[in-house]
Simulated assay, not measured.
Amino acid sequence: MDRGDPTYGYKTVPARNHVDGCDWHACDCPRTEGLQIDFDGEVHAYAAEIISRLLRSDSRNSVCLDFGRRESLAPSDYKRQARGNKLPEKRAEWCPETLRNIVTSPTIRGLMSHNGEIVYGEDGMWVRVGPAMVDDSQAAELLVRMEQKPRTRTDGAAPLLDVAFCDCGGKLHLWQAKRKIKGGEKLYRNYRCQYANKGQCDAGAITAEDLESLVSSYVQLPTMLGEIEVYANHLVPGEDHTEEIEQRREALDKLTERLGMVPAGPAMDAVLRAMGEHTESMAQLEKLPQRAAEWVSVPTGETYAERCPTRLGRTWAPAHGRSLHAGCLP
């Protein structure tokens, strides 16, 4: 929960004095002073979907396009509507940065934050203010994924972008132009080297239909690419407990300061007990392995021929090409 409006998927509710074992969601624990957060009905389902899809490697752009087609209100418009304000004629659009802000917020871990930074209590520990949508491992994986630059592929994108390359090493870009002919217009589609217009490559253009049919035949013919198993990139989350260790070290420092200010008796016993718990926890964390996150290539159990429907004999449209690039080629 950021001080102010909670992150998309959450709402502010009266605080409760939660008992051990409570998950903080729609519970009947005794009411207390102040506010906390809880899941916000329908938009909680949208936020959970965003998290789930990004964890399974869906791109931010594809999620944004899908939410736009479904006419789901973007967070800014949802807040306007929740406050009873009239929505603008031009609706806010979903964008990759919006998704990034949602999934990198400490709120989805049920923690209080300020300007995106976790807020610590007097005991040096994170302040919990609501139910979590992800565990620490999933939160760490999302942070790694958000470091990747989002890529936009629309329905008009070149089918063989990042698949076809010139002999000089440059990417082949799709060039399209309409020319008036007798009876109407004709669409010309060719692939050209990205450096051709810069005077750095003298390679000629190749007809898009010929190149796309060639790639399709390589996918379909069993003696060529068709029998090769498709591999997919899979993120193996790293394991780094530095932040947790530092958190407990700071908590110990604060408790040490308090120790000299409390009188002997129950209060001092409570401080000493907390110090012992932090020391033991820190020792256990320091024994755990440290490793960086990495991407590995894993088999999918499908061949290229099984993954792609036969396209030989079809007229290649951008939509077909996009399906080939996204679903068949790495």
Rank of each mutant, 00 (worst) to 15 (best):
V215F: 13
V215W: 05
V215R: 02
V215I: 12
V215H: 01
S216M: 15
S216Y: 01
S216G: 06
S217C: 07
S217P: 03
S217K: 07
S217M: 11
S217A: 12
S217Y: 11
Y218K: 00
Y218H: 09
Y218T: 01
Y218I: 03
Y218A: 11
Y218N: 04
V219A: 14
V219G: 03
V219H: 01
V219L: 15
Q220Y: 09
Q220R: 15
Q220W: 08
Q220K: 11
Q220D: 13
L221M: 09
P222T: 05
P222D: 04
P222S: 04
P222K: 00
T223H: 12
T223D: 13
T223N: 10
T223G: 07
T223Y: 09
T223W: 10
T223A: 10
T223K: 10
M224L: 14
M224D: 04
M224I: 09
M224Q: 11
L225A: 15
L225R: 05
L225Q: 03
G226E: 06
G226F: 05
G226W: 05
G226K: 02
G226M: 04
E227H: 14
E227S: 15
E227F: 02
I228L: 13
E229H: 05
E229M: 08
E229F: 00
E229D: 10
E229Y: 01
V230Q: 11
V230R: 12
V230I: 09
V230P: 03
V230D: 00
V230M: 15
Y231A: 00
Y231P: 02
A232W: 04
A232E: 14
A232S: 14
A232R: 14
N233L: 06
N233S: 10
N233F: 03
N233D: 15
N233K: 14
H234Y: 08
H234R: 11
H234G: 02
H234T: 07
H234C: 00
L235V: 11
L235I: 11
L235R: 05
L235Y: 06
V236C: 04
V236G: 03
P237R: 09
G238R: 08
G238F: 06
G238C: 06
G238I: 04
G238D: 05
E239S: 12
E239C: 08
E239L: 13
E239P: 00
E239V: 13
D240I: 03
D240Q: 03
D240H: 08
D240V: 07
H241F: 15
H241N: 13
H241Y: 12
H241D: 06
T242D: 10
T242M: 00
E243G: 02
E243N: 04
E243V: 10
E244M: 11
E244N: 09
E244A: 15
